[in-house]
Design a protein around this nucleic acid. Structure first.
Lengths: 188, 188, 188, 188
DNA sequence: CATGAATGAGAGTTCATTCAT
DNA sequence: GATGAATGAACTCTCATTCAT
């Protein structure tokens, strides 16, 4: 039965991903999840004691899927420019399809839960980007920029973009401009 | 009695500003507003039919208060550098005191209401910054940057900063770095 | 409106007295009270935040109604024997009509709430009976019994009686026997 | 397999005894029993269809264990005083350790189930004590008291004591006083 | 107009009980 | 038989909203 339990759990997570992506964190109720999964109240509660718990499981899953393994690529010796392009492409993709991303839900969740999770996620993102830039500078592919400053610039302009792209219609070229700007900072 | 009505309205708006700043938009209930204003349910409803309505009145008020009248300063011939510094200082102030700002509430409100308000606010911000940068370029104070790109950079990195500063503890120098970066883009 | 509020409150208390007397404390839900008072959920909750709160109000009321003012009678100089007879008659009445009494509900409530209320009620009962017996001894109406022991005997056999009379059919003479026993202890 | 079934049944009864003693009857759920016995829902249900059924089995068991076999002792010719002392000692023990006893659970159960069980238990207790007192009177060890009255006094003051000792902190000497009182009634 | 009592919809949560495996 | 996943009923509690006074 272990197996069936895992299956249901997976089904719940998949379904609620869609809910959270569409509605953010607070707006999703256990009833919503019941409805979308066609499960009963009690059944759902036996898997997760609340939406926060479901969301945390999703965060776990996401952070393990590890969108782009920058450190791994560095170790493999992939050129910094190539890694940068992949990472930026991924960013662009998320901004272009904001409805598929948990960004807003994560933000709302973070607001309500003084959890270390966000601090952790942030720190890991900072570390990744810092590693990439250091690496690019060392290989001579990147300009000798202020690493901290550049990382901040990348992360926060990205966050700003991806959150507001959910709110206001954004010209297609806007994220491209930001991404270009970042490239110009780094690539000679 | 027109006058008294306006007073009460003002009292409601002042009180709810605090609520929205502290709790965001969705989390504020009409009951909260009743409690904080010591008004009766019916009384409050006779002024505003719901929290959205209160919030819209606040947005109105804010956009009229017009934090920095960039166009006005340009007309007065204030040096572009000086206007820039004021504008950036204001940004920094808001980021340093995120608990006083409606940023998150605005964001939440925008998410739930496909309202033109956000688009409008955004367009006006874009226009202001574009005007400033054009002006600075014309007066020779600013470098000949890509205006659109620079405006996007400023606005979205600012949004990213001010929203995430509510969520994760941010090093004091982080906003300074972003602001410095912006200055470096513009000022030779 | 103060007046109406008090009226409703009284209505709720009257109705829930019946419920608690019939079903004990735990078994009564807010829904039961809604049903019996024909009030809505929210309306009821605006008066009392839960069954415990209603019950506490009832206890308050009861302890103020002050079934028999033993101290008062002593001050008035009523003969001890007469006071004793009244007090015992009252006990008998409660045991004969157990369905009208909150005894079981009080017991259940006490079990769930480490409240001082029970300790208080108990202490007051002890004090009353002790005062009466001391008084009777002083006036020479009562035998020179061990006051503490007699009070314990009275109170606990009474409690035992009134609780078990709810559970098992009790011969009419059983409480009479106990009461007679008590009288024999005290009256020469 | 008959054997294993009995074992499991015993395990369930032992575990639920603790639950009932700690929480009373109503407060114990089938879930609690599952948890404490580490059994599955279905497994438990295949033994007992509900908490009432478990409790009834416990009552059965208890009444068979026959805490003190008064009739047996009488038949053996044990002196009435000795039997009385044992019986009272047992009472005192239960009052001193109310947390080990089902008293409250029994009471709650009786309230909810118009069952003959309580009437039976009560009748048997009455019979035992009556037999003992008659025996003591016959052997000349006890005074020639009113048997019915004395039995009522013993049983109900005992019930009162043991139930209220769960609710209010009771002075150690209180049960001793009651027990002494009983002894004084019987022993010249 | 203001008041605040009352309504009722709906979210959260817990369990007794069933049933496919 | 045993298992434990799932169901669904029942309860608690909170608010937006209405309406008699």
């Amino acid at each position: 039965m272990r197996f069936k339990r895992e299956l249901t759990r997976g089904r719940i997570l998949d379904a609620s991903y869609k809910l959270f992506a569409a509605k953010g964190f607070k707006q999703v109720t256990m009833k919503d999840v019941c409805d979308i999964t066609h499960m009963s109240r009690g059944g759902l509660y036996s898997h997760f004691p609340g939406t926060a718990s479901i969301f945390e499981a999703l965060l776990q899953q996401i952070s393990q899927e590890n969108f782009l393994d920058i450190e791994g690529e560095i170790d493999k010796g992939t050129p910094a420019t190539e890694i940068l392009n992949s990472a930026l492409a991924q960013m662009q993709k998320e901004i272009d399809h904001p409805e598929d991303s948990l960004s807003i839900a994560i933000f709302e969740y973070a607001q309500m839960n003084e959890s270390e999770v966000m601090i952790d996620l942030n720190r890991r993102a900072v570390d990744k980007w810092a590693a990439l830039i250091h690496y690019g500078i060392k290989t001579g592919e990147f300009k000798n920029v202020d690493v901290d400053e550049t990382v901040s610039l990348i992360l926060y302009s990205y966050q700003g973009l991806r959150m507001w792209s959910r709110i206001i219609p954004m010209k297609k070229k806007t994220p491209e401009q930001i991404i270009n700007h970042i490239k110009k900072q780094l690539i000679p």
